[in-house]
Design a protein around this nucleic acid. Structure first.
Lengths: 257, 257
DNA sequence: CGCGATTTGTGCGTCTGTTCACAAGCGCCT
DNA sequence: AGGCGCTTGTGAACAGACGCACAAATCGCG
């Protein structure tokens, strides 16, 4: 942090703090990855990185990386690269991580339990400020040094802590109701682990993580690879319907019925 | 293609099974969502759905849905809609779910434990066929009716079961080694929960789920919304650098240092 | 002090994905 | 049998993202 460059967090008087350009969504999704790689680099002693080097560490095209970074202002030095520490600060600022964010986790079942103990949240700028559950038999349980409270205490919890983000790890039937409650108390960002769509008023952001969907996507590619290697004779890429050969190679037993 | 569609799972004799058109990646990612919604509809007694109806249930544009479905063949009836049961079969076939897939889960820590007990996998076409861990103190533990085995037994496990997909839920330092082992025994699809990039040979698919990244993306939008509402006076949308006003409104304390 | 090596930042063509809008097709009702 | 309303499937315009390739800028060295 030896920059002449004002720390982005420091309320520098002069302008030129490139506050919040509206970034392409695809770029936003990659910034956390860059941030992680940069932290690793910083720990291993690197003071600067070239776009090529950082891109390799993240596994993306270097031009894409440069364009991404250029969106948040020009913080590289031609002929040298990017100052690691500076870039870390910059990205953390843009992502709103200069201030540790408090999240409320609702649903302390199988998955919620694991999330409550997930060290990655704490180390990446978040603080689980509350554990909530609707099941009275779970209320009072202590997980990782935190006591589970009843979900009805949500208003009180939000009053105590400044909760910006809610995480839903409840079973599907409860998810929408919890989302409504979160919205009611002013939460405007929700991370939903329940495999269902949530309807929320405009202005509230919802992101969804569905573990099974990821597997199903992999399954598709698996299926695809299998069918392609099984049919090398049937010239080229199967762009159109394959003449039933597939049915023969694949012992399909339906699970649906 | 109004073939009195034969059940895709049933090895119908005649050809014309629209086997594996190479779908756009974006479409593939949505198929599981359609599938879930269709299952719900089927349970609630619907026999057919219009694209409009299904699109609403999933939360997408109906034109997009129709185009997605059209990629896997024409299975709707104009003026009527889609046959729910037929579409379910069709999507399950394309996703390779007509046959229940066996997955191996490596890393039975906090998160792995939860994944091992996650009912969503079983109900959506997957079977956790093995739990593995490198930590000898965890080997032998029984989770959800399955015994944890040592990761070195991977070759044996794959021999017993037909493992197509591996799930990595280990700490970061172990992830790459585990990936290498999985690849070595012939696994060609990996779902990685460790927050790091895996390098795998060509032909192996990796999907990554990073819980913290999702939160960081939400944090960005949170930050953005906060800054926008805080500056209603500063005309319109802040497309360019804001003149330092932001720094004043936001009590930023860095977490980095 | 100037030059060459290096690396950023970006203009532009390409491609993928999304949306609109409408013709074609289907079933039902008369 | 014929017409009418509804819904699919898709052509075409549009938008967003990607990657190439190069000019501009900086550093270090002679």
């Amino acid at each position: 942090m030896s920059q002449q460059h004002r720390h982005p967090g420091a309320p520098g008087r002069a302008g030129a703090v490139p506050a919040l350009p509206d970034l392409p969504e695809a770029t936003v999704a990659r910034l956390p990855e860059y941030l992680r790689a940069l932290h690793n680099l910083a720990e291993s002693g690197h003071e600067t990185v070239s776009s090529e080097g950082l891109a390799a560490a993240v596994g993306v095209n270097s031009a894409k990386l440069r364009k991404d970074l250029s969106h948040l202002g020009s913080y590289g030095t031609r002929g040298v690269g990017y100052d690691v520490a500076l870039l870390v600060d910059q990205i953390e600022f843009v992502l709103g991580l200069t201030q540790r964010r408090a999240v409320a986790l609702v649903g302390v079942g199988n998955l919620g339990h694991a999330l409550a103990g997930y060290a990655g949240f704490a180390s990446r700028g978040f603080r689980i400020a509350a554990l909530l559950d609707a099941d009275a038999s779970r209320v009072g349980e202590e997980i990782n040094g935190m006591v589970v409270r009843h979900v009805d205490e949500l208003p009180a919890v939000v009053a105590e802590e400044s909760i910006a983000i809610g995480v839903i790890a409840t079973p599907v039937p409860a998810a929408q109701a919890v989302a409504d409650q979160l919205v009611a108390v002013g939460v405007t960002s929700i991370l939903n682990f329940a495999p269902c769509v949530l309807s929320v008023p405009e202005g509230v952001d919802v992101r969804k993580v569905d573990l099974a969907i990821e597997l199903q996507i992999l399954s598709f590619h698996e299926h695809r690879k299998a069918s392609l290697t099984a049919l090398p004779a049937t010239g080229g890429s199967a762009l159109t319907a394959l003449p039933g050969g597939l049915a023969a190679t694949d012992p399909q037993e339906a699970i649906g019925t």
